[in-house]
Design a protein around this nucleic acid. Structure first.
Lengths: 337, 337
DNA sequence: CTGTTAGCGCGTTCAA
DNA sequence: TTGAACGCGCTAACAG
């Protein structure tokens, strides 16, 4: 039923090799025959079969993307960066949600490899030994997006999470606060969890402010957890006067908890978030935050992968993108200061 | 380099046909030889080549998804529904952003078809004649997600947008408001734009409230446009006392414009949104809205597609999912009333 | 500049 | 229960 390259060849009165040449933009074809072929293609409505092409050429122009959850603002933005660059270089992406479940991640990696993707982008909180083993069976390049492995065996794209946390905490400290709380993500996450906690402590130490465990709460990056954590903090004998939340969603939860308690941000309590997802400029007061270049994290990862797939020389395969302190209205220090 | 089915066959001392059978769970294999094969697979680390399989079987267990912009909350949620069900039925998805650009949409549809996807999910504001022509060249099933064609030639999954707008407007009218404004999306969008405008007018008419053009503003569904539209509305001689925004983002913009003007929601002005994206429960006051079952729209679309791909009988290929009025705090009418 | 000929790795008859 | 052989649609030498 479907028209093949043979049908086109017959229709145009040439060999299939010639048809293949014109389809693949091979310059070694006489203009007149090229036209004959093009006409035949048009007439028959020929559509090249990419699967057959993939089998013969061993290239699928498709890359696999393992992502925790596409419905989250952060990942959705990263995914957009990935897809834009992929599209730019004529690749398509197979998108898979992992929910950060290790077994599912491993299964997806395997499925993607079976599908002969030309490369793989992996995002996830932790790269375990099992992950490394799975990566090891791949014969195509892999880039770790917003994560990395402890040995730096695979190329990766990240921001400096610890330094970002230092910056956020220091800003609060510089405003004069001495009771600065941290609402972090799970400390068991070696990439995005623990380093921010480390940065918080380092900043405290650098300023000579004693660390106090009671000012640390662990959330899950979601709004609710931020709000609940802040309620607890507010119930302390000596509540914090500033809060650093490891995600914008939690930071917004913090702001609302503060407001619900009849206090004001930033007059009574300063709040700074992390990520700079679009919601941070859709709340009152506008949220001050550590901006991660989410789109770029995706875009740079994909660009790096294209180079790797193309066997190009790549200077440094471990990219650290710059984060940025975005001062809006939830901290006393605001833009321009 | 990569190990093929032949290598496994040799290693196990059987023919490749037998290996194929055990890999594909064909029961006609003696248990002992099955074990021999399984061992050989394990020993060699054999990974079936899905591309070769796809060429031979004419099935790729991959579906194409054309979506306007994965970084938007609405679409990200729909995409999640799609991917979950796809995963459940052992399909993978190739995700493509179209930015609602017609040429890009047509190109993507073609690319996806070249890649021999087993089915296609299309989302976009409008299904033009060119789209229909492109769909017509497909030999695999296509489902229109959150959109439809004017002839209902293709299966689709939607909500009743007009009725949803009637419900939202009527709620506001029932609160006693007589100056109800509408901030809609582009009226040129036949699926999600115009019908909501129609519903607004119908509700007005049903309650005998005269339609007044000055209370209608066109936005682009984004926060900024909602905020700006509200500023204009506020500048009217007789500002509206209630606003129906065709998206939650715009509704939040409306709330902030109202607050910035020193007025209160809902005491001075009632606001209702559309979609029920997660941000609607992350603002103060909590946003009342028309909830669209975003995840289900994606999930049901994908489920429908699996049936179609499987050539199963499907009762009604034009699914209308229920929307829901979610009353929170931005309207006077609140939960329980 | 063009055609012939092998594969690519696997599913699937058809016989045995 | 198993194997031999063909073909899926195309790319890539190689020859001419």
């Amino acid at each position: 039923m479907p028209v093949t390259i043979y049908d086109v060849a017959r229709e145009a009165g040439v060999s299939m090799a010639t048809v293949s040449r014109v389809v693949n933009q091979n310059p070694n074809v006489k203009p007149t025959t090229r036209k004959k072929v093009l006409d035949a293609i048009e007439r028959l409505g020929y559509r090249p079969n990419a699967v057959a092409r993939g089998l013969a050429s061993k290239k699928t122009t498709t890359v696999g993307v393992v992502i925790p959850d596409i419905s989250g603002s952060f990942f959705a933005e990263v995914a957009r960066g990935i897809e834009d660059i992929a599209n730019m270089y004529n690749y398509n992406i197979i998108l898979c949600n992992s929910d950060e479940q290790k077994e599912k991640e491993l299964r997806l990696i395997n499925t993607l490899l079976e599908k002969q993707v030309d490369g793989l982008l992996f995002m996830g909180n932790e790269v375990t030994e099992d992950h490394k083993e799975a990566f090891g069976t791949a014969s195509v390049p892999i880039v770790l997006t917003a994560t990395y492995d402890d040995e730096n065996r695979w190329p990766s794209v990240n921001i400096d999470n610890k330094q970002a946390a230092v910056d956020a905490t220091t800003l609060l400290l510089d405003e004069g606060h001495r009771h600065v709380a941290l609402i972090t993500g799970p400390l068991t996450h070696p990439v995005n969890g623990f380093p921010r906690y480390q940065g918080y402590r380092e900043a405290l130490e650098a300023k000579g402010v004693p660390f106090d465990e009671k000012y640390v709460r662990v959330g899950d990056y979601r709004y609710q957890s931020g709000m609940e954590a802040m309620r607890e903090l507010l119930a302390l004998d000596e509540p914090p006067t500033a809060v650093f939340a490891a995600s914008d969603e939690m930071a917004v939860g913090v702001i609302h908890a503060v407001q619900d308690a009849g206090k004001r941000v930033p007059e009574d309590i300063s709040v700074i978030g992390f990520d700079n997802i679009n919601i941070s400029s859709m709340v009152r007061p506008l949220l001050s935050t550590i901006a991660q270049p989410m789109y770029d994290i995706g875009a740079v990862s994909m660009r790096l992968l294209t180079k790797l797939m193309n066997k190009e020389e790549v200077e440094d395969p471990h990219v650290i993108l710059q984060h940025e302190l975005v001062l809006r209205q939830s901290t006393k220090t605001q833009a321009g200061e």
